[in-house]
Structure formats: structure tokens, C-alpha cells
Amino acid sequence: MFWRRNKEQKQEDDAKIEESLVKTKRGFFNRIAGLFTAGDITPAFWDELEELLIFADVGGNTSVDLVEKVREAAEKQGLKKTIEVEALFKQYLAALLKRNTRAFAEGPRMLTVILVVGVNGSGKTTSIGKLGKWYKDQGRKVALGAADTFRAAAIDQLKIWGERIDVPVFASQSGADPGAVVYDSIRACIAREIDTLIIDTAGRLHTKFNLMQEVTKLRSVAAKQVHRAPHETLLVLDATTGQNGLTQAKVFKEAVEITGLILTKLDGTSKGGIVFSISQELNLPIYFVGTGEDITDFAAFDPDVFVEGLFKRETQGV
């Protein structure tokens, strides 16, 4: 769905998302699934549904909205049993995520440049390592650019990832101009016929105007070297993030034109429910999910699988 991948790979991906959501399911979404078996639809049922969405960080307003819509639709269709609402509800959730299924970094080009941005501690560097591996497994020639010259030892961290996945890392020293790193990385990629460059940037809170300006600069540096670069600007979002995730995505989108999301730390008990609001309000696709600390704990995001996974009933225990 996101780009060409073979069947096994897709199955493997789906399994990973589902696996990571097992813990999630055991939490509140599992209670949602439990709700649907309960019998007649009562006002309390709707309240509980709303509660559970809120617990999943879907957000007060979105949850109220969502339940309202499903409720209307259910009444229109004359549904009586909670179990009948399940399919309808899933449909609505999936629809929210499916509004935007633009292919990731599509199209053949000499050099694909991907800029990765996000707030501090969201998991940018780790995601870049994993994304690099992902691309490499597809037979691409990958390099990483270390444009986080601010945080202590960020360059070292990326270099270690580079070693792990065996791809070159282009870096300057700490404190160097990130724009120069982007420039040098692109030149080096062209010289060495590398076709995919993933650039790590410093963590920045979206409220810091100057730091957001810096990303704009990085983008324009890239654009001057490669046609239409960066081809993707990805926002890395921690799945534990609450309602601020929406503001984050909004500001990043306005300021630096992010094109999609990587949702990280989905192996925790967090549900990443904020992606529903983000998808609804900002029309941004979620491209990947990070599901653990291992290199391979990374998968393409699939809205259907994501939603299906949230509702899948446990066969044994819990």
C-alpha cells in the first residue's frame, strides 16, 4: 500500500504492528473490544466508549466527536446491540487514518533525501537507524547525515547506528552548522552514487521559533542541491505523547512542511491515539511505526492493521 513490498514483507510488518499492540490491547482498547460483546446499547455504553477513547489519548474533543458520529450512524441504521456497533466503529477509526495514503518517497530519482525532525527525545536517531536498515534491505544504497550538531554525543549515537547497519555516516563536529552538514552530505552522496540520504536533525520543541527556522534553512539547502529535496520531511512522534502531539504536528507542518509521521515507542502500553486527531485535522499520513529498541523493530504503518489490531480480542487470558 505504501510502496511496493512483497507479500512476506507485508505479513512480517503486520505481525510486528499486531505484536506491539498486544500490550496496548491488553490495556484499554481491550476493554473497548469487551464493550462490544456486552448486549444492548445504553447511554452508559456510549459514555464508556468515549472514556476509553480518551484513555487512549485520542483526545477529549475528538473522542466526543467520534462517539457522536458513530452514535448517529448507529441510530440511523437502527442498531440495537453493542456488537453491531463494532464494525461501524472500526470503520470510522480506520477512515480517519485512511484519508491520506500517499506513497512514501515515491518516484525514481538519483538521490532521495529524507529529513527527519521532531521534539527532543522522540526517537529520531533510533528511527533513522531503523529506516536506514529498512531501505538498505530493499537494495538501496543508503547514507545517514548527522545534522544534529547540538546535543552532546548525538553524532556518536548516529555513527554507532551507521556501524550497526553498515552504511556511511556523514558528519562534521559538534557545534558545526547543520546546514553545512546537509550540504556536505548531499555532495558526498552524489559523489559516491548513494541513492538514499536520511538526515538526522537536533530535537527541537515546536515552540522555539529560531530552531524551527533552522529546519526551513536545512530544507532550502537541500532543495538547492537536489531537485525538490527533501523528498520527505518526517516528524517523529512518541506514542506516549498526549494532546500536545497535535499541536506539535500542526506547528511542524506549518513551519517546515512535514509530509508524514513516524510513530515511535509503540511497544509501550501507550496507544498513540493522538494519531487520529493528527490524521483528521492535518491530513498527514503515518508512514512507519517503531516497536522496540532493536534494529528490526520497525514496520510500515497500515491503517487497517493498526485499527484491526486495536480491536482484536485476545484468545487466551488477560
Binding site: V119, G121, D238, G242, N244, Q248, T269, I274
Partner: peptide, 11 residues
């Protein structure tokens, strides 16, 4: 992290 959502309590 101040941005943590509903999960904070459980953590």
C-alpha cells in the same frame, strides 16, 4: 516528559 498523555499515571 511534560507531553506525556494518559499513560503517565500508569508509568
Amino acid at each position: 516528559d511534560a507531553m506525556t498523555g494518559q499513560e503517565a499515571v500508569r508509568v
